[in-house]
């Protein structure tokens, strides 16, 4: 087990982290970009999730929608990872010990696994999906899990500010 806590202490002692803490506007500015990242990431994945669950866009084939939506999801994820790192760096050891942060990271891993599992499961049968408006039960479950996980991730993210 690597010593994450001492790495966190080193990280928050860097001049970069000190700048993040000392500036009045830098932290809220990065938080704002993080918020735009949520809109891109959660917005694009939710469109796909709702389609998988059969709630919307029945006329658009799932693979076509996925091709349109996933670049935005990845863009959003990139923004989230980059801005999230800076937000973390400002108070690394406090955040590392924060229960909401730990829950968030766990849910992030679960969301990643859910997406990976669904991708592996469906990529083989993608040809059969083309032109079909209804989705199989596995797709409905994957969509619902993804939606629930991203909601949990955003709520947990907000809770980091409220837990000591």
């Amino acid at each position: 087990m690597p010593d994450f806590l001492s790495w966190c202490q080193w990280l928050e002692s860097t001049p970069m982290s000190a700048t993040l803490r000392d500036s009045l506007w830098l932290f809220p500015a990065i938080e704002t970009v993080h918020l735009f990242g949520i809109v891109a990431l959660v917005g694009s994945t939710s469109i796909l999730d709702l389609r998988l669950m059969g709630f919307t866009l029945a006329g658009t084939p799932v693979p076509k929608l996925a091709r349109r939506v996933l670049p935005w999801a990845w863009l959003g994820f990139g923004i989230q990872a980059a801005t999230g790192f800076f937000l973390f760096a400002a108070e690394a050891s406090r955040v590392y010990l924060n229960p909401a942060f730990r829950f968030k990271m766990l849910m992030l891993v679960a969301a990643g696994l859910n997406a990976l599992l669904f991708h592996v499961m469906t990529s083989r049968s993608a040809a059969q999906w083309e032109g079909r408006s209804t989705t199989p039960m596995s797709a409905k479950i994957a969509g619902l899990s993804s939606l629930a996980l991203w909601f949990a991730i955003v709520i947990a993210g907000r809770m980091i500010a409220y837990f000591e």
């Binding site: 918020l35 949520i38 939710s46 909601f151 709520i155 907000r158 409220y162």
Partner: peptide
């Protein structure tokens, strides 16, 4: 309440900001 404000705040973002900004964008 400890939970009320952050939960409503999260819903303001998730169920408000996300659909509004995504649809209008």
């Amino acid at each position: 309440s400890f939970w009320a404000f952050p939960l409503v705040e999260s819903l303001h973002i998730l169920c408000g900001n996300v659909p509004l900004l995504v649809a209008t964008s």
